[in-house]
Simulated scan of single mutants.
Amino acid sequence: MSSFSMDISGPFPSGQFTGGLGGPNTGGHQPPNWYIQYGMDLAAPPGTPVHAAFDAHITKFSPHDPGADNGKVYGAQLFMRSPNDMMGGFYTHLTNVPQLAVGSQVSRGDLLGEVTEFGGIDSHLHLALVEIIGGAPGGQYQGVDIYQLFLNSPASDTTTSVTFMQDGSPPTW
């Protein structure tokens, strides 16, 4: 398999990120699902715009249903994959999602919605990334830990080239 690089940006406008609330394999971020285990909780005030961290197409979308919110699942959920189908992401705890649907194309920096609020829980975006070794649909999903990158560069106006090795090793930047 050949490695590939993608430009990745933080999900928030400059100055809106208020800190990390936990990264992959910590707290409630446990296996077996990559989108939970490799989650990064990035704190921002309710209503903060959330932008796409990379170019992608939406593969699954669950709109926000406030009546179904609970302490673990709340807000809209978006699954998306890169144009080459070799990397993907999961965003949740969103509200006011623009007209997005399965198949919608998004570019890095496009608005995906806003950070929602759920009573008693620090407002944050849950973002998880996955490398798809061999590409989707039949590839092997390997969660990606780039939490430190987002802690160091959370703003959507900062771009970092991240290289995915396609061999199960961590990405580099």
Results as ranks from 00 to 15, higher is better:
residue 5 S to R: 12
residue 9 S to R: 15
residue 10 G to W: 13
residue 10 G to L: 11
residue 10 G to H: 12
residue 11 P to V: 13
residue 16 Q to H: 08
residue 16 Q to L: 07
residue 17 F to V: 00
residue 18 T to M: 07
residue 20 G to I: 03
residue 22 G to A: 03
residue 24 P to Y: 03
residue 28 G to K: 07
residue 31 P to T: 04
residue 36 I to W: 14
residue 40 M to D: 07
residue 41 D to W: 00
residue 44 A to S: 04
residue 44 A to M: 07
residue 45 P to Y: 02
residue 45 P to Q: 06
residue 45 P to A: 13
residue 46 P to L: 03
residue 47 G to M: 05
residue 50 V to N: 06
residue 53 A to C: 15
residue 53 A to S: 15
residue 53 A to H: 01
residue 54 F to E: 09
residue 55 D to Y: 15
residue 55 D to M: 14
residue 56 A to R: 13
residue 57 H to A: 14
residue 59 T to Y: 01
residue 60 K to L: 10
residue 60 K to E: 08
residue 62 S to K: 07
residue 63 P to F: 01
residue 63 P to W: 02
residue 63 P to Q: 09
residue 63 P to I: 05
residue 66 P to K: 15
residue 66 P to I: 09
residue 66 P to H: 05
residue 69 D to C: 09
residue 71 G to M: 08
residue 71 G to N: 14
residue 72 K to R: 15
residue 73 V to D: 14
residue 74 Y to K: 14
residue 75 G to Q: 04
residue 77 Q to N: 08
residue 78 L to M: 10
residue 79 F to I: 00
residue 80 M to L: 15
residue 81 R to P: 00
residue 81 R to A: 12
residue 82 S to H: 11
residue 82 S to N: 08
residue 82 S to P: 10
residue 83 P to S: 07
residue 85 D to L: 08
residue 86 M to C: 06
residue 86 M to I: 00
residue 88 G to A: 06
residue 89 G to L: 03
residue 89 G to S: 11
residue 90 F to C: 12
residue 91 Y to A: 07
residue 92 T to A: 05
residue 94 L to I: 12
residue 96 N to P: 09
residue 97 V to S: 09
residue 103 G to E: 04
residue 104 S to V: 09
residue 105 Q to T: 14
residue 106 V to Y: 04
residue 107 S to R: 13
residue 107 S to G: 14
residue 109 G to V: 11
residue 112 L to F: 01
residue 113 G to S: 03
residue 113 G to R: 01
residue 115 V to E: 05
residue 115 V to D: 00
residue 117 E to V: 06
residue 120 G to A: 03
residue 121 I to P: 01
residue 122 D to M: 08
residue 123 S to C: 01
residue 124 H to Q: 08
residue 125 L to S: 13
residue 127 L to E: 10
residue 128 A to T: 06
residue 129 L to M: 15
residue 130 V to L: 05
residue 130 V to F: 08
residue 136 A to E: 00
residue 136 A to T: 00
residue 136 A to D: 03
residue 139 G to S: 04
residue 140 Q to K: 04
residue 143 G to S: 04
residue 143 G to R: 04
residue 143 G to W: 00
residue 145 D to G: 04
residue 146 I to H: 02
residue 151 L to N: 11
residue 151 L to C: 06
residue 153 S to V: 02
residue 153 S to L: 09
residue 154 P to K: 03
residue 155 A to G: 10
residue 155 A to P: 00
residue 158 T to E: 14
residue 158 T to V: 12
residue 159 T to F: 00
residue 160 T to E: 02
residue 161 S to E: 13
residue 167 D to E: 04
residue 167 D to H: 06
residue 171 P to V: 08
residue 171 P to M: 10
